[in-house]
Design a protein around this nucleic acid. Structure first.
Length: 600
RNA sequence: GCCGAUGUGGCGCAGUGGUAGCGCAUUCGAUUCGUAAUCGAACGGUCGGGAGUUCGAAUCUCCCCAUCGGCCCCA
């Protein structure tokens, strides 16, 4: 596991980051040089260093094949072995432009024309090849170790990230200082693949997909459902303690609900198509699957008049929503089309906002701690992009909401960073971003301050002076969604769930057939205490049963045979600690229930 | 949605034009066995779907679907 990992011993972190960055950038140049040598018709674009490696985007009519990559790699090694100097040259603007025109490099020319005219332009020359670039680079291609880089894959990428511009071919590579580092990096990637939740989810029997049901619509098997219910129950109990009330709302609603909320106009494309009720299929009347729960909770709030004395009101629901995500962006449990949000909407007075917001953040921190997500997350303050017009609501309400979030982050000592342009269209967010073992980032918990929906739905409460006032809403979801959370937990624990979450907590292993009866009696006693337990009554030897339990990642195994059945004991073996010796049933229960209670 | 790759029994894979094969799992039989794999046998697929080329296709062509890697997107 990652827990006891000492970064100073990590050979992948022993290189100077700046040096590595330069090395990777230079390797991407050599990639471009090799490609243009082998395929002269190819147009070059950009090729930066990234985490663990680099990429370069090319425009070429025919796709690169895996064989092409091998060929390119060989050419790159040749260039490296020639130890060509990589020389920086400052060039007069006119001369540079003429060169680019002469070389027929439209992409480079576009970049060049976008440069600040007051900054000198530079190129880097490597042998008889050069690239418009500001550097920095290594001094010679010989500074790159020919056995420490590798081309990985080719993928499509839009020119300048714009889906209306041409689709380029991006070649990804990884590069390190030494061959040992490369080897270690590839080894770790292999390890990471083993904990991929899609693979483990199938192996452990947690969820499945069906082509007939449809893409992005997970099916929860008995074991996966147990995991989900355990998580739901955990949060539900905690929320009740913190003054939340459970509500339940339908999965579909009149489209008018979402016209009032504004979703229909902003996010129509991301909603499942309208189920028109009239004769006219193009009618804008009918029902839609809900893409979120807020308008429903708002209708519950509006079903009666509220006094300031009642506020804050906190409605909570595990609400399943449906969003028509584009086919190419679906993946496992982390991006799906139907998912359940541990949703809640808080209706508060403006005076209560800061305090309530902090309470929500506290709940989220509590949840993450219980799930042992530890320090793997950071808080992103998702504010609006001041230059965009895709948001609804007044500047003033946005300022107030963003201010409340910033204050909470500061007062609660969160490790936060501000991300402009990441806000929801109706309000800013505080998002909890989880970093998984592969370094990929996922948004889990989220809190959002919203002055807009109360306005659009004309929400009010009666204040002390009997006037009608407008409440503020907080949207929040500690898990984010059950689907994404479970996907991430599977990878975080590598399928090896802590006892309180494990779908099967205990498996009883009779040494031979004649002890099945005794094993069943142990099972019954554990079940009566709500322990999730099963008996391995297969006709296998003990070694095989242990092996099967280990691969199924069952946390506690109880071996029972001659001596146990006569003394009313069990021989305990745990995944974490191995053989723990013989225990009486009371001691066993105390041990198991204690660990569940402690969420260990 | 876009670019590319992939799609063979439950799972992991082999098979590139001549009537589908291996391992694991499953089932049955033998064994009744003490801390990571007992032995044997059987069952199981028409090769993602459809159309086409061919005397003949899992193997070639086209369309569709799904998955994977990216891009874009993510209330």
């Amino acid at each position: 596991m990652v827990a006891n990992f000492d970064p100073s011993q990590d050979i992948l972190r022993q290189s100077d980051p700046e040096k590595l960055h330069r090395l990777r950038h230079s390797t991407s140049h050599i990639l471009a040089m090799a490609v243009q040598k082998l395929y002269p018709e190819t147009k070059v674009t950009i090729g930066p260093a990234i985490d663990n490696g680099f990429y370069y985007d090319f425009d070429r009519p025919t796709p690169f094949t895996p064989d092409d990559l091998k060929r390119i790699e060989r050419e790159m090694r040749r260039i490296v072995q020639q130890k060509l100097p990589m020389v920086r040259e400052e060039v007069p603007r006119e001369a540079m432009r003429e060169q680019l025109v002469a070389l027929k490099e439209p992409y480079k020319l576009e970049l060049f024309d976008g440069f600040d005219p007051n900054v000198p332009v530079t190129l880097y020359r490597t042998g008889d090849w050069w690239d418009l670039c500001s550097g920095p680079h290594v001094e010679s291609t010989g500074d790159i170790n020919a056995n420490a880089f590798k081309l990985r894959s080719v993928a499509g990428a839009y020119w300048r990230g714009d889906e209306n511009r041409p689709m380029l071919q991006r070649i990804y590579g990884t590069a390190w200082e030494t061959p040992e580092q490369l080897e270690e990096y590839l080894r770790r990637e292999e390890e990471a693949k083993k904990r991929d939740h899609r693979k483990l989810g199938r192996e452990l029997g947690l969820f499945a997909f069906s082509d007939l049901v449809g893409p992005g619509l997970p099916l929860w098997t008995p074991k996966g459902a147990l995991l989900r219910y355990t998580l739901e129950e955990f949060l539900r109990k905690e929320q009740v303690k913190r003054g939340y009330q459970q509500v339940i709302t339908p999965h579909i609603a009149r489209v008018d609900l979402f016209k009032t909320s504004g979703h229909w106009f902003k996010y129509k494309e991301d909603m499942f198509p309208l189920m028109a009720t009239g004769e006219d299929p193009n009618s804008e009347e009918g029902f839609v699957m809900k893409p979120m729960n807020c308008p429903f909770h708002i209708q519950i709030y509006k079903s009666e008049l509220h006094s300031y004395r009642e506020l804050p009101i906190r409605y909570a629901e595990f609400g399943t929503v449906y969003r028509y995500e584009q086919s190419g962006e679906l993946g496992g449990l982390t991006r799906v089309r139907g998912f359940t949000v541990d949703d809640s909407h808080l209706f508060v007075t403006p005076e209560q906002l800061d305090d309530e917001f902090k309470k929500v953040v506290d709940l989220i921190q509590f949840v993450f701690k219980a799930l042992q997500l530890g320090d793997s997350f950071s808080a992103r303050l998702s504010f609006r992009d001041p230059t965009s017009d895709k948001y609804i609501g007044s500047d003033e309400s946005w300022e107030k909401a963003q201010g409340a979030i910033l204050r909470a982050a500061q007062e609660m000592d969160l490790q936060y960073f501000i991300a402009e342009g990441e806000a929801a269209f109706y309000g800013p967010k505080l998002d909890f971003i989880f970093r998984d073992v592969l370094g990929r980032e996922w948004q889990l918990g989220t809190v959002q301050v919203d002055y807009n929906l109360p306005e659009r739905f004309d929400l009010e409460y009666v204040a002390e002076d009997s006037t009608r006032r407008r409440p503020v809403m907080i949207h929040r979801a500690p898990f984010g969604s059950l689907e994404r959370l479970i996907g991430i937990l599977i990878e975080h624990y590598a399928g090896d769930f802590p006892l309180w979450l494990a779908p099967v907590q205990v498996r009883v292993l009779p040494v031979s057939e004649q002890f099945i009866g005794y094993a069943e009696s142990i099972k019954d006693r554990l079940i009566s205490q709500s322990v999730r337990v099963e008996v391995d009554s297969s006709n296998e030897r003990l070694g095989k049963k242990i092996r099967n339990s280990e691969t199924a990642k069952v946390p506690v195994m109880l071996v029972v045979g001659e001596s146990e059945s006569t003394s009313d004991t069990v021989a305990v073996r745990t995944r974490a600690d191995g053989d723990k010796g013989t225990m009486g049933i009371d001691d066993l229960l105390a041990y198991v229930l204690g660990r569940i209670e402690a969420r260990a």
